[in-house]
Design a protein around this nucleic acid. Structure first.
Length: 272
DNA sequence: GCGACAG
DNA sequence: ATCTTGTCGC
């Protein structure tokens, strides 16, 4: 994206790029799970979802949430919400740098503490290979957790010629019912993902792309089978619960780091 | 050159 | 991402 002019920001972006490129290199042949091979996903029992909720716009504190739902009935089996520090800023193309670390931690906690509840696949809020460098947050999480991952974005990332142009809008209008899709083919000719009308109610599609250890076809079918609303239930629950958790456990403003539950003063200014 | 740009 | 009121529909 940016040409190197030597600015500190540029340096940082280049470093992030290299780190991600390194991770991408470690991706091996797409090995898939047994349950992906049959049309009804027999053998699939647990689907995970992750999301972050923020306080205002740029506070370091956020709530990271990981939920695991039963499949196919989509009942919550596991929930983990906690306030975390998010250091990196949001930079389009580098969402994984911002949200990846805390989400990986959440997954690893589950794998260690409740392995029997481990998700067999993870739905991620963001893109997979539908990404500037073919390595979105869903790929990133997949590599670092080893779990099959699917990227689910609520908005189209403009990459490889894809854009919300007239053609795109027309294709959206042609989506008649829940389950309808159209491929997202970049100028390179490669299919980077699928636009999916996830339910009858909403006319705005979601954008599904491969994250890790799964085919696009399976990914789309899986996501659609998890949709009671526009957003697939695992991600939706993670979103709802992280937001609720923040509301109930408001992080202290700034600098007031450690749990300082007590404040004596009622007003800002001591009256004299 | 400017703008567009997952969350 | 987050801030917002009402409103339409099952």
């Amino acid at each position: 994206m940016a040409d190197g002019d030597g600015s500190p920001l540029d340096e940082t972006l280049r470093r992030w790029e290299l780190e991600q490129a390194q991770l991408k290199t470690s991706v091996k042949e797409e090995d898939t799970e047994e349950w992906q091979k049959n049309a009804t996903f027999e053998g699939l029992e647990r689907v995970g979802g992750v999301d972050l909720s923020y306080v205002e716009g740029n506070q370091p504190q956020a709530c990271a949430s990981l939920v695991v739902l039963s499949y196919p009935d989509l009942q919550v089996l596991y929930e983990d919400c906690r306030v975390v520090d998010v250091r990196a800023p949001y930079v389009p193309g580098f969402l994984a740098v911002r949200e990846g670390p805390v989400l990986v931690e959440a997954v690893q906690r589950l794998l260690e503490q409740e392995p029997s509840l481990s998700p067999q696949v993870l739905l991620v809020d963001g893109n997979g290979v539908l990404h500037y460098r073919g390595f979105g947050v869903a790929c990133h999480l997949g590599v670092l957790t080893g779990l099959p991952c699917v990227g689910v974005a609520k908005n189209l990332l403009h990459v490889d010629g894809l854009a919300k142009d007239e053609l795109h809008k027309e294709q959206i209008r042609d989506l008649q019912m829940g389950g309808d899709t159209f491929p997202l083919m970049g100028a390179s000719g490669r299919v980077l993902g699928m636009a999916l009308r996830s339910c009858d109610k909403s006319t705005k599609p979601i954008y599904v792309s491969v994250g890790h250890r799964m085919s696009l076809e399976s990914a789309v079918r899986l996501v659609q089978s998890c949709c009671r609303h526009r957003i697939p239930e695992p991600i939706r629950q993670a979103d709802i619960r992280s937001r609720e958790y923040l509301r109930k456990h408001p992080p202290s403003p700034a600098g007031t780091a450690h749990p300082g539950p007590e404040r004596r003063d009622e007003g800002t200014e001591p009256k004299h």
